[in-house]
Write a protein that binds this DNA or RNA. Structure first.
Lengths: 179, 179
DNA sequence: CCTCCTGAGTTCAATGATAGGACTCAGTAG
DNA sequence: CTACTGAGTCCTATCATTGAACTCAGGAGG
């Protein structure tokens, strides 16, 4: 009964979670972004078990989010740095941090703020449509099925789309109208 | 040895993870966003254990991300819907989905695409600075400490800022220069 | 009335993941 | 030769997750 893997789900959110959804992993990525790259420093900063940290870093390296670079030969020492894929994830973590500031943050105010070099101001990350630049409000967006969609574990109903879902419900006796 | 809680960390990312960082939880939120609100439908869609789904939904309701609404009195039936806080998280999940499309997606292409009502085009979520509208590239941003910063478990080193971190390292004998 | 069915869970045993301490190992400093 | 550091590995107790079986309220059909 090992934990269900999301790797084979036809859902990019599930696949993202497969590589960064583990407990501790986003915080490890945060530390790497903040420039903590040495094993002992991350372990001390987070207070995480060393065996867990070891396993997480190895997984991140294997998945290509993190690179291991030698910075000393005598003694042999490596540091962990974010890869391109890992760096691409940082803005997402910032957006999640901003959500936390707004909805579950400490009353003392935000622990960390981000200054934007370009404009010199404290960043409030905003998620927008790349075409028109408008903020992505929930209701302003309609999900459409893409070429990778499947009705499989993890997307059994979602993978069908609303129309097929309604059909499937209607075909099952005793459902659809009463529920 | 229960799993370490992130709730008391002085880090908004950690606090976000505390409420939505569990395995399955983001996928549950995804299903709620897609309009699957009934217990049995979510369970069937994801293939998740019902006891886990029950626990996750209860936690989400307690944390205020999800509301439980009665839609039938006879028989008594409730459906789960995203609250305002939960809806505010959806764009973040979209951004994470887009990251997955780009870096770990299936070769068949994206399973789901989002159409922006305002401009009628397929959305490519972009995370930008709310002031100047520029994309938040990793190097374009400098972390600054905010009022809620503490040097405590989870932010023991990060909570000090680079300057104090260097000082602390220098004060510990045998560190800082060699490492 | 009796039985079957559905939605919405709860209870349970087995197994895997986590936490945290003890231990290893290469290399340096004195 | 001893002490120390960084970077882990190994071990064990406990917790979380899984999946199946079970409960329970409330129709539907006969």
């Amino acid at each position: 009964m090992q934990r269900t893997s999301f790797a084979r789900m036809h859902c990019s959110l599930a696949r993202s979670l497969e590589v960064m959804g583990d407990w501790w992993t986003p915080l490890i990525l945060r530390d790497l972004y903040f420039g903590l790259g040495r094993f002992a420093d991350i372990a001390e900063d987070l207070g995480v078990s060393k065996n867990l940290l070891s396993a997480r870093l190895a997984a991140l390296v294997k998945r290509g989010l993190v690179e291991r670079r030698r910075y000393s030969e005598h003694p042999p020492r490596d540091r962990y740095v974010l890869s391109t894929a890992g760096r691409a994830l940082v803005p997402v973590l910032m957006a999640l941090t901003a959500w936390g500031d707004r909805w579950v943050g400490p009353s003392e105010g935000p622990p960390v703020r981000f200054e934007h070099r370009a404009c010199g101001r404290i960043v409030h990350p905003e998620i927008v449509c790349s075409h028109c630049g408008q903020p992505l409000e929930v209701d302003a967006v309609v999900p459409r099925s893409g070429p990778g969609r499947r009705s499989a574990p993890g997307t059994r109903l979602v993978g069908k789309g609303p129309r097929e879902r309604a059909d499937a419900a209607a075909r099952r006796p005793g459902r659809g109208t009463r529920g």
